[in-house]
């Protein structure tokens, strides 16, 4: 499945690959497609990010240039949003990891004797996928709204200040990000734990390891490939997300993330160079972080 996209998986013994013209025929259409609709857009984005307004031109009209000041401008203007994006994404990733690991462990290790239950629980994990991303976020907005019984209940119990809100706060945005990307975290960890040889855990217990020691010295290291995939699959979309942070959903005026400003610059104020520069910045930071993270956790050779 795609959820193992970032996992390392030991290469199976394969017959020696052949060299043939057929390979070119098989590869060409798809690769050309990606060049045309992935690589060229990236180049277009870089070009756009350096454009300057047409002198005395209309609103939203730009011409080719090398205006690197665009980058300086967006960083000074949107520094807060950039930092906020990565902070929220990091928090959501940590919460999703803490939330998902026990579930993945339960399904992948504890339920091994009951494959049917295992499959059923997996279906439940991915179930939120099948209800529209936007609608499930809106559902949380209603459930956690100021007049909802959860919030009024918490206020009645004095667990929440009478004039406090949940929706519109950074906590709500992080909550939404966490919820929405939980399946991306759970499935790769499950895939790794499902392959875990429990005889190694027995060997650990036999060699005087207490349950907690066994967990941290054996289970966690052996599921590292799954953790790495899960972290990447959660962090990358969370950093670029703008639904949860949007004031129409769980966010407010002070929660906007880099995605929100890319959207408003591109689609509302038609400031294409600023939107493009922000996109390039976002992508660069993510690529640097991903490379560093993957190097550090020792799982290279992606895809």
């Amino acid at each position: 499945m795609a959820f193992t996209a970032f996992s390392t998986g030991t290469a199976k013994e394969q017959a020696p690959r052949r060299k043939s013209k057929i390979a070119l025929l098989l590869l060409l259409p798809g690769i050309l497609y990606l060049l045309l609709f992935f690589l060229v857009p990236l180049v277009a984005l870089i070009a756009t990010s350096l454009q300057e307004p047409v002198p005395f031109g209309d609103f939203g009209q730009y011409q080719t240039a090398f205006r690197w000041q665009n980058y300086v401008e967006v960083i000074t203007t949107y520094g807060d949003q950039i930092i906020r994006s990565f902070t929220y994404a990091l928090l959501a990733t940590i919460f999703a990891l803490l939330f998902s690991y026990p579930i993945a462990y339960f399904i992948g290790v504890k339920c091994r004797q009951w494959p049917l239950l295992q499959n059923l629980l997996l279906v439940l994990v991915i179930a939120p996928f099948f209800i529209s991303f936007l609608l499930r976020t809106l559902a949380w907005k209603s459930i956690l709204a100021d007049e909802s019984f959860i919030v009024t209940g918490l206020k009645a119990l004095s667990l929440m200040a009478p004039d406090a809100h949940f929706t519109g706060t950074p906590a709500a945005v992080v909550f939404g990000l966490t919820y929405n990307f939980i399946p991306f975290m759970t499935l790769p960890i499950y895939a790794a734990l499902e392959r875990l040889d429990t005889r190694l855990l027995e060997a650990g217990r036999d060699l005087y390891a207490k349950p907690a020691t066994s967990f941290f010295k054996i289970t966690v290291p052996l599921s590292m490939a799954g953790i790495v995939s899960g972290v990447l699959l959660t962090f990358i979309p969370a950093a670029g997300d703008y639904i949860n942070a949007s004031s129409r959903f769980l966010g407010g005026s002070s929660t906007s993330m880099i995605g929100n400003v890319i959207e408003s610059n591109f689609l509302v104020s038609l400031n294409y160079p600023a939107a493009a520069a922000l996109s390039i910045i976002l992508m660069s930071i993510i690529l640097v972080l991903v490379t560093a993270y993957v190097k550090r956790s020792g799982t290279e050779d992606l895809l």
């Binding site: 992935f38 857009p41 990236l42 277009a44 984005l45 990447l232 990358i236 979309p237 950093a239 670029g240 997300d241 703008y242 880099i258 995605g259 890319i262 959207e263 591109f266 939107a275 493009a276 996109s279 390039i280 976002l282 992508m283 993510i286 690529l287 991903v290």
Partner: peptide, 10 residues
């Protein structure tokens, strides 16, 4: 590995 918003803007 690219955030959707970057693909979209590109």
């Amino acid at each position: 590995a690219t955030p959707e918003v970057v693909l979209a803007a590109g």
